[in-house]
Design a protein around this nucleic acid. Structure first.
Lengths: 190, 190
DNA sequence: TTGCTAAGCGGAGACAGTCTCCGTATTGTT
DNA sequence: AACAATACGGAGACTGTCTCCGCTTAGCAA
C-alpha cells in the first residue's frame, strides 16, 4: 500500500496530503496509542476529515500505512544478523529485537503482525525477513525442521502482546528475552 | 469484586440490578466482543445508564465482573487434572484447555489474564489454579524448576491472543495445541 | 496564456457511544 | 407511618466516526 493507488500517479497535492497524514498519524499513534482520534490526526496534518477518509477508508488502513514504514526500518535491522556466524543465535537475537521493536511501537503493530494475508504489508515484510533467518538456522541444523516461521511469529507476537499488557504488579513480569529464550529452548535441536 | 461492596449488604433492588447487568453484559460481550456498547447493555438489562455506571465505573470493571464468573467455571475444569497420573501431561492439557476457554470467550479475558495485580480476580483465580498444576509438575520433576507460573501464563495468554487474532489467510494458522506443545518442549526436563 | 475537466479538498452535520448530574423513587429501619 | 439512606434513570453534554457535496486546484491541451 504505497502512495500510488493503482492506475495513474497521484496528483501533487494528494501525495502531499498523504505524506502529511502518515506523518501526523505516526506521531499521534505513538503519543496516544492506536485509538488516537482520526479527526484529530487530520487536524494535525492540516487537512479535513474528508481528506483523511478518502486516503484511508478506516483506522486500520492508516495504521497499516504507518506500520509499513516502521516495518521496513525494523527489517533493515536484521541485515547484519543474516551474516552472523551462528544462525540459531542470530534467530534468537532477531526475535528479541522484534519484540523490542513492537513494544517500542506501543504495540501498534501487534495486531498487524499476525495477519499473514496480503492485505497487510507489515506482516509480509516482517514474516519475510524472519523467514530468511529461520531457514538459515534450519539449514545449519540449529533448530527443528518441523517448526514453521508462522509459528514463531505467532509466539513472538503473543509475547509482545503479553509483555505490553502485563500490569506490573508485585512480581516483576518476565523479560521478553526470557520468554523468547524459553521458546528457543523448545525449538532448538538437541 | 463480588456483589457485596465492602460494608453493608446491597439493597435488594441494587443486587437485582447488579445481577441483571452482569447477565446482560455477558450476553452482549459474547455477541459483540469487548467493545459492545455499555448503554446498550444497560438497556438490555432494563436499567438506565446511570445505574450501570454506579455499579461499574468503567468498561473494565464490568468486563472483570463477567470474567470472574467465567474464570470460576474454567477453574473448576481443572479439578480432575489435579489428580492425573502424569502431572506434566496434566499441565499440558490444562494449558490447552485454558487457551480454548479464552478463545471461546472471544478473548474477553485475554487482557485480564495478564494482570496479576489484585485488581483483577479473574487473573488471580486462573493464576492460582495454574500454579497448583505447575507445582505438581515440578515436584514430579517433569518440568524445569526455573520456570515460573507467571511465565507460563504470559506465554499462554499470548498464544490465546495470537490464535484469536490471526486472520486465517492462505496458510492455516497453527493450532493452540501445537503452540502449547512447543512451549512445553522448552519447559520439560530432559 | 487561457480554459477545461477530472481529481481532490474540507467542513457541516448526522449518528453513535461515553459518562454525569440531579430530581425522583424505593428500601429497610425505628 | 414516617424518615433517612440508598439507589434509580433519563436528559443532555461531550467526544469521536464517517459521509456528503459544493468548492478549489492541478495538470493538460489548444
Amino acid at each position: 500500500m504505497t502512495a500510488e493507488t493503482g492506475r495513474r500517479p497521484m496528483r501533487a497535492d494528494a501525495r502531499r496530503n498523504y505524506e502529511k497524514l502518515v506523518a501526523a498519524a505516526t506521531e499521534s499513534f505513538l503519543a496516544n496509542g492506536p485509538d488516537a482520534s482520526l479527526d484529530d490526526i487530520a487536524k494535525r496534518a492540516g487537512v479535513g476529515p474528508g481528506t483523511l477518509y478518502r486516503h484511508f477508508p478506516n483506522r486500520e488502513a492508516l495504521l497499516d500505512a504507518v506500520c509499513v514504514r516502521w516495518a521496513d526500518s525494523v527489517a533493515a535491522d536484521a541485515a547484519p544478523l543474516l551474516e552472523a556466524a551462528d544462525p540459531t543465535e542470530a534467530l534468537n537475537a532477531w526475535l528479541v529485537r522484534l519484540v523490542a521493536h513492537v513494544s517500542e511501537f506501543k504495540g501498534l503493530a501487534a495486531a498487524l503482525l499476525l495477519s499473514s494475508d496480503r492485505k497487510h504489508d507489515t506482516a509480509w515484510v516482517l514474516h519475510h525477513t524472519s523467514d530468511e533467518l529461520v531457514e538459515r538456522a534450519k539449514a545449519a541444523g540449529g533448530i527443528r525442521a518441523d517448526v514453521t516461521t508462522s509459528e514463531l511469529m505467532q509466539l513472538t507476537s503473543g509475547i509482545s502482546y503479553a509483555c505490553g499488557h502485563s500490569k506490573q504488579a508485585g512480581k516483576p513480569t518476565s523479560t521478553p528475552e526470557r520468554l523468547i529464550g524459553l521458546i528457543m529452548d523448545g525449538v532448538r535441536t538437541r
